[in-house]
Computed example of a mutant assay.
Amino acid sequence: MSSFLQAFVDPKKNFLAAMHMKALTNRLRKYGLRYDDLYDPYYDLDIKEALNRLPTEIVDARHQRLKRHGPFHEA
């Protein structure tokens, strides 16, 4: 990805990206989810490694949230 595009989608560098992240976080919170739950460990190996290093209680809670409010769950 080009450095311009990376800076464009990075919430730390772009005000609009930060606003989008905040709005999305608030919408996810209504369903009991977190913004970090959107990261896919099969897509990014760094995410997979980070999940492997977390305590099992945190990973289990993440799995329960995803199971409860999966991508095809109708609210």
Rank of each mutant, 00 (worst) to 15 (best):
M1K: 10
M1T: 13
S3W: 09
L5M: 13
Q6R: 10
F8R: 14
F8V: 10
F8T: 12
P11H: 09
K12M: 01
K13N: 06
K13T: 11
N14I: 08
F15Y: 13
F15Q: 15
F15E: 15
L16P: 03
A17H: 00
A17N: 01
M19W: 08
M19G: 11
M19I: 11
M19E: 13
H20Q: 05
H20L: 07
H20W: 04
H20M: 04
M21W: 02
L24D: 04
L24Y: 01
T25N: 05
N26C: 02
N26F: 02
N26W: 01
R27M: 08
R27L: 06
L28T: 03
R29P: 00
R29W: 01
K30I: 09
Y31G: 07
R34G: 03
Y35T: 01
D36M: 07
D36V: 09
D36S: 10
D37W: 02
Y39I: 10
Y39N: 14
D40N: 15
D40R: 03
P41S: 05
P41K: 06
Y43A: 14
D44E: 05
L45T: 14
D46Y: 08
I47F: 06
K48R: 15
K48C: 05
A50W: 08
L51R: 13
L51Q: 11
R53L: 10
R53W: 06
L54F: 09
L54M: 15
P55I: 04
P55L: 00
P55T: 01
T56W: 00
E57H: 13
E57C: 12
E57G: 11
E57A: 15
V59K: 00
A61I: 00
A61F: 03
R62W: 10
Q64N: 08
Q64R: 13
R65C: 11
R65W: 05
L66V: 02
L66Q: 10
K67C: 02
R68Y: 10
R68I: 08
R68Q: 15
G70P: 02
F72S: 09
H73W: 12
H73N: 06
H73M: 06
H73V: 08
H73P: 01
E74I: 11
A75T: 09
